[in-house]
Design a protein around this nucleic acid. Structure first.
Lengths: 343, 343
DNA sequence: GTTTAGCACTCTCTGATGGCGAGTGCTAAG
DNA sequence: CTTAGCACTCGCCATCAGAGAGTGCTAAAC
């Protein structure tokens, strides 16, 4: 039933709706896109498409509107055509200047994505399981405080100020830091967390007070979600009239960064080629069923690292958005590789 | 003309409007607040108040609504009465656990403020001019990169990863770091920025390549806005129906953290007792003329440090909000003093 | 068999209308 | 100075009719 012509009509309807944000009628479609059929024929096709679940009518006598399934068809067809379109490098120009620092890079990516799409841009570093510790540094600070600085092999730096019960001499502090580095360098953050738990249960038996302290410091230091997420453009995003009536729920869902992070990870995981599109009801998060998102992961040393993406209304310009997200991901991958190679 | 009774009526009208969010009429006022006058009398008073610019009518036959000047009168009266009300310590319970780290403390403050008011909570650390460097640490990272960690006397830590043109030996790195510490420890961040500019112009003459490198590193490292701002509750805030029609502008203004930070600083500067209330049109930022804000600064060692505050609709519950903000500021001041004393 | 023209039908949107209710301002009496 | 009474003003809401857009169906044309 879904022959070539029917597909073409569906594709055009979705495209038109994305452009105009108005239900599209048969007459309009014929005029605007110069179809060689009369409105009546289009009406028949539309009726078929509705029966197949690709279109729906807001009410009996409005035009047709794509369902999530309709969008899915459209997006899949876009991706088959893998139209490269114009280069987007100019858009990413602003990113060139911040290649050094993965934090700035991701922040810039979120900003760029948002500014070029006027939707919400997100960027997340690699998750703890894929992040390995390069080194850990400790300094005493005003007596009973220790500043802990973690540096990962991915270039992420985290710091934390910890208050301790006991005064620690600089000498002991150095020994603790050496011990931690010898023990944990090169391991993934997740692994270290596990190791610490194991060690700490053994530690009582060992009775080495220094190691015990070291473990406690390290546990404290790792006690943050390694996996901040950068977002940009909430203001623009909120200004979109589409979901003004549900803004509160949606905004709350999006403000839950932990949740968004998990979602990004999951979506990318399931995709085959590194880019994933999630349309409306396909979204596992209930509050985000009115949204569309495009996510891609970037790589470091050829391995999947973190993710970047755009969140917008269902009826967004997928063609452009997908290009934008993919280009950004590729840019970050390149930047990280450059960095490596310069070492 | 503004005698005691008139004042009482105005105060009650504002209070009533804040509670109900409905224009308040003469009859309603008499019934609800058991005034010993008839509605007609109240009407006369209201007419006077309108003439004086404290009230206005949305349309000829609605009740009265306070103008910004009306709110100002109300807020000033509240503050004269300095009613302490119940303690809010229970609200701040969540903050107890994060006393160590100024970052967490401020983040927690923003969250607490937002959750207890359902408006937008903000918290900012001391500005660079009031922040002094405790020490600066450098480590080499994968060859041509340097991780710089700044620790201030206020407990703020900043890090940055810098890519350098030249390879630096660990030995030289240590010497650079020693030099920077001896040169800059104890100075305010702003001062250091100035000193660097001066030194760098002199440096050519000195021709000490190590110092030149040190300066460059330091300049790079200080090249971020020391003065992040923590915000929480944008979702709740946006859900407030009051300004749904201007959400986009408002959200955009608020997303501009630099601007908000400046505003907070300025407002606090001008207040006498550490707490300031800014109502609607009193706001120097045009986009925020539809908002009310309450800001207070917290102290460290008796000196003004950073600021905390709440941003909400003009018609917010100022009595509660002021208590909340002041309590939070005091809590942070205390926590910072505790910390000191524990050293 | 497929496409098209014609037509009746459905449903939303808009603007006009009018009654209701809340609240005011004014006036005159207490 | 306060109060009661009264006419008046508006915003709000429900109702209603007409216009317009779009559909589904049927019958004719290709």
């Amino acid at each position: 039933m879904m022959n070539d012509r029917t597909g073409q009509v569906l594709y055009t309807i979705v495209q038109s709706f994305i452009e105009t944000h108005e239900p599209v009628g048969s007459r309009f479609l014929v005029k605007r896109y110069n179809f060689n059929f009369s409105p009546a024929t289009i009406r028949n096709i539309m009726a078929d498409l509705e029966e197949l679940g690709f279109l729906s009518q807001p009410h009996t006598s409005a035009g047709r509107v794509p369902t999530d399934r309709g969008y899915r068809f459209y997006v899949d067809r876009i991706r088959q055509m893998h139209e490269e379109g114009e280069k987007l490098t100019s858009m990413l120009a602003g990113l060139e200047s911040v290649r050094d620092d993965i934090d700035s890079l991701l922040e810039g990516a979120a900003r760029t994505l948002s500014e070029n799409s006027s939707y919400l841009g997100v960027a997340a570093p690699a998750k703890p399981g894929r992040t390995t510790l390069n080194r850990i540094e400790l300094f005493g600070y005003k007596g009973r405080h220790i500043a802990v600085v973690l540096i990962t092999n991915e270039g992420v730096i985290k710091h934390k100020l910890i208050r301790t019960e006991w005064e620690i001499t600089p000498n002991n502090l150095r020994r603790i830091s050496e011990y931690l580095n010898s023990e944990f360098s090169g391991y993934a953050i997740d692994e270290i967390r596990l190791k610490i738990i194991k060690e700490m249960s053994r530690e009582k038996a060992m009775c080495d007070i220094l190691i015990s302290k070291a473990m406690e410091i390290c546990r404290e230091a790792l006690n943050f979600p390694l996996g901040d997420i950068y977002m940009h453009g909430l203001a623009e995003f909120i200004g979109i009239p589409d979901f003004s009536y549900r803004i509160k729920d949606i905004a709350r869902a999006i403000e839950d960064k932990g949740m968004v992070l998990k979602l990004l990870e999951k979506v990318c995981q399931e995709s085959e080629d590194g880019t994933a599109v999630l349309i409306g009801s396909e979204n596992p998060v209930k509050e985000m069923r009115d949204l569309g998102m495009v996510v891609a992961y970037y790589t470091q040393d050829g391995k999947q690292a973190g993710t970047v993406g755009i969140i917008g209304p269902i009826r967004m310009d997928y063609a452009k958005t997908i290009r934008l997200v993919e280009t950004t991901a590729r840019f970050i991958s390149d930047a990280l590789t450059d960095k490596r190679s310069s070492i």
